[in-house]
Design a protein around this nucleic acid. Sequence first.
DNA 1: ACGATGTCGACTGTCGACAGTTTTCCCAAC
DNA 2: GTTGGGAAAACTGTCGACAGTCGACATCGT
Lengths: 227, 227
Amino acid sequence: MSSSSGVGDFTVIQQRNLVDQVADLLTQAIIDQRFAPGERLSEVQLSRELGVSRAPVREAARLLESRGLLVSQPRRGFFVRALDARELDDIFDLRLCLERHAIERLALDASSATLAALARQVEVLCEAAVSGNESRRIEEDLNFHRLLIASAGNRRLLKTFDDLAHELRLCITLITKTHESPDTIADSHQWLLDALASGSPARCREAIDYHIGVARDYVVRGIGDST
Amino acid sequence: MSSSSGVGDFTVIQQRNLVDQVADLLTQAIIDQRFAPGERLSEVQLSRELGVSRAPVREAARLLESRGLLVSQPRRGFFVRALDARELDDIFDLRLCLERHAIERLALDASSATLAALARQVEVLCEAAVSGNESRRIEEDLNFHRLLIASAGNRRLLKTFDDLAHELRLCITLITKTHESPDTIADSHQWLLDALASGSPARCREAIDYHIGVARDYVVRGIGDST
DNA sequence: ACGATGTCGACTGTCGACAGTTTTCCCAAC
DNA sequence: GTTGGGAAAACTGTCGACAGTCGACATCGT
């Protein structure tokens, strides 16, 4: 990516803020369900455990609030977002909204390079699926859909999806097991690629509606079991 | 909107944080273009002027960053978001994505009460238009589209629109004059209502595509004049 | 005159502390 | 056993201060 100087691959030195580090740690802890949904997070306790002051913790918490992982009540503090069935429906409905828009646009003007990149990502996803590494499979699945949206060329749309992706990870934690075989995963994503290659927006819409509907059903079934 | 208790409209008592107050003041200042696009905001200067410490200013700035009104560079500070032509396109494309989704859904199952509420809001908008109060007209216009999306019943979709609305206000500041007569405004929104009443998703999509396309053209023309 | 280097000022990142509020816990009263 | 009240503990909101870093200007060398 870097152009001129012959020194080679210098990864740009960026001293990471404490805010970002705390935000990452908290995000991972929430996704790993090391906090119970609805649990209150104490600023002082977190700052003690992490060995930092309260200021970075507060700012990180605000960041996670804007991403939908935490909710705040004035003078009460921050709480881990607990999703009910309705919010879950809303989240998948918004996901449908974003991905429909992207894939319908792509159907009309997807370059062969774009299709190739998507096909490559499906391969990566399949590798992750057969490897048995569950969290990696989830990330590669999200990566495919992220690439789909990124290919539409609208950065604001991509930013919205990235925000939503955090909540999607929160949803996915509700699923106890995936029940999906690697073959099923491969097929369902290949169908999306075929629809894209056909160039028909209507067919793409059908494909993405079905694809996200299946994903949504898995999560709804997960929450149905537990509650 | 509130349902049961017979005590009437209690505006929920919330002692406003300094953070929220600062955020509102900054938001208004940015929308009023009292800061130049791209201008750097000094935390110490702001905190001095507002008579508060730096902590609330920092947190408010992070809030506005998540809303797209500010951008931050590590160790450099916060800068007023400056929109280029491409970001502008992206914003209106996302708006189209959200409103299409809402109106297509509404076309299938809009209650008469919903249609009536939308019609009422068009009247309010028209009043604002003939009154000549420009900022009020803008807000009532946004309120109509907000109501449209809210009527679809997806709160997550509405939250996304609310975030985007802040950026839309930023776009609108680029327009020097509106050029739109009250009659034009009334007609263009009435067409949306007629499309909704027809119950045809396809017709709704056409209507919203045209409607947002016109709005986008106004803004693009505005940025085209200035640069 | 022009580019590189050293220095200075201003600013952000982070911290510890204080004040006011919320929550919890204990005890008394019914 | 349950309810109500009150004090103490814990917590959040806010503040002022210190240290590290960035940008601008002056200085030096060519």
